[in-house]
Amino acid sequence: MRAMRTWDIFCNVVDNYGDIGIAWRLARGLAREHGLAVRLWVNDLRTFQRIWPAISPDADQQVCEGVAVCAWHTPFAPTRPAQVVVEAFGCALPEPYLLAMSEQSPPPVWINLEYLSAEPWVAEHHGLPSPHPRLPLTKYFFFPGYTPGTGGLLAEADVAGRRTAFVHDGMPAFWRELGLDTPQADELRVSLFAYENPALPGLLDVWAADPHPVTCLVPEGRVIPQLAAWLAVPGLRAGDTGRRGALQLHVLPFMNQDWYDRLLWACDLNFVRGEDSCVRAQWAARPLVWQAYPQADNAHWDKVNALLTHYTAGLDRTTADAVNGLWQRWNGMPIAHGMPACWAAWRSRQAAIERHAQAWCGRLGLVGTLIDKLVEFAENKLK
């Protein structure tokens, strides 16, 4: 019987919770679905606790969901490396750990887990080796992506089943827990998780002018000051509400990962940002609008358009234009139509977009999941 494989995942928490959110989902999935001994090294446990409250921010070592969570201190204490080492998003491994890796025989499988992109070059670079300039080690670049030649998307094996059970049986209780009534027949419920965005006031204006009720649910975060300014109030915090025209705003407490998944499953439309929430929204099988992390010289526009190329493939022209227009306007691209026209086009094709969101979720499953592909890649290197 083969001994349990050991994995170390290193995560340097930068901001916005995305890096630790992905690293935590990955660590849990590896332990739960593949029976691996996983250590997750994190430099900021307090931020980690925001997305997973069971984490103790002061513990050097703790076990949570079958994962050994370790505080990543500087200087780094001597530690025997695992058989597989995942460097999340180029976070740079501690030098003492690297030296220990170089002394192992055979050396660990060293994987740099990259950020997700739908751009065409991803498949060409996926899995490429990069020898260390000083040490007898090789790092492999592992790119998540949307085609079979990439690392796939991060998802748990049971995510579809849990979503289906929630939609069938769990939504009324979820709304009650949030202090909301069951949606009216003609009501649109939207979740809004976003970076600061100059397009936000215009979006709120069109929602306020919509002929049907729009309820916007906003987890505490970076857009709260913009919402307060739009409502002309001094500030907003969890539990506060605001109304203008057809639009009712509700500010929600910051949510852990499982609660946020349920919010995505429950809403008719999800505005998401960055990588982790974008992927979760796609697995939610609901319409979404993605805001890429803003980059210098608007380099993020290429990322948005690359994902749109995949996402709208097979859609009729009118529906694809409606999806493209709202995404591009939300990301600040210089397109011909303003927010009122973009929202009207989206509303006119809403039913088709909803059907597409469900079909898209099924298509993603054919590419394979990041967890399974990562394990397969590592096992092939360990042979």
Rank of each mutant, 00 (worst) to 15 (best):
P107H: 03
G332D: 09
P108H: 01
L269W: 14
L113W: 07
R176F: 06
R134P: 00
F48C: 12
L249D: 01
M1G: 11
G151F: 10
Q295C: 01
P81N: 06
P219M: 10
Q282I: 07
S277W: 04
R273N: 05
I20T: 03
A306F: 01
R189V: 15
W24D: 00
R355S: 14
V323E: 01
D316G: 12
D19E: 03
E114H: 03
L178S: 06
V223G: 03
V14D: 04
P144M: 08
L180Q: 10
F89T: 08
D261E: 13
D15Q: 13
C91T: 02
W283M: 14
Y115K: 04
L247S: 04
T319D: 01
R5Q: 15
D297Q: 14
G325K: 02
V67Y: 00
L26W: 05
L30W: 02
F377G: 05
Y260G: 04
P94E: 09
C91V: 05
A160H: 10
R244H: 07
E177W: 04
L288P: 01
R39D: 09
G202S: 13
E376F: 04
V38G: 03
Q62F: 10
V86M: 03
H168K: 15
P211E: 12
Q328W: 00
L247K: 03
Q226F: 06
M4A: 15
Q104N: 06
R286Q: 12
H250S: 10
I353Q: 02
Y293W: 11
L315T: 03
N256Y: 07
I9F: 06
H250C: 12
E275N: 09
S105F: 06
H168V: 13
H300T: 11
P183Q: 00
A173G: 07
Q257M: 13
A118V: 07
Q104M: 15
M255A: 10
G245K: 09
A228V: 11
R286G: 03
L370V: 08
G325Q: 14
G245W: 07
F254G: 06
A208Y: 09
A357Q: 05
H126F: 12
L307H: 08
H132D: 15
R189T: 14
E376T: 14
A351M: 08
A157P: 05
P136Y: 11
R189M: 09
S105A: 13
N12L: 15
L128V: 14
L236E: 04
T241Y: 04
R347I: 08
F48H: 12
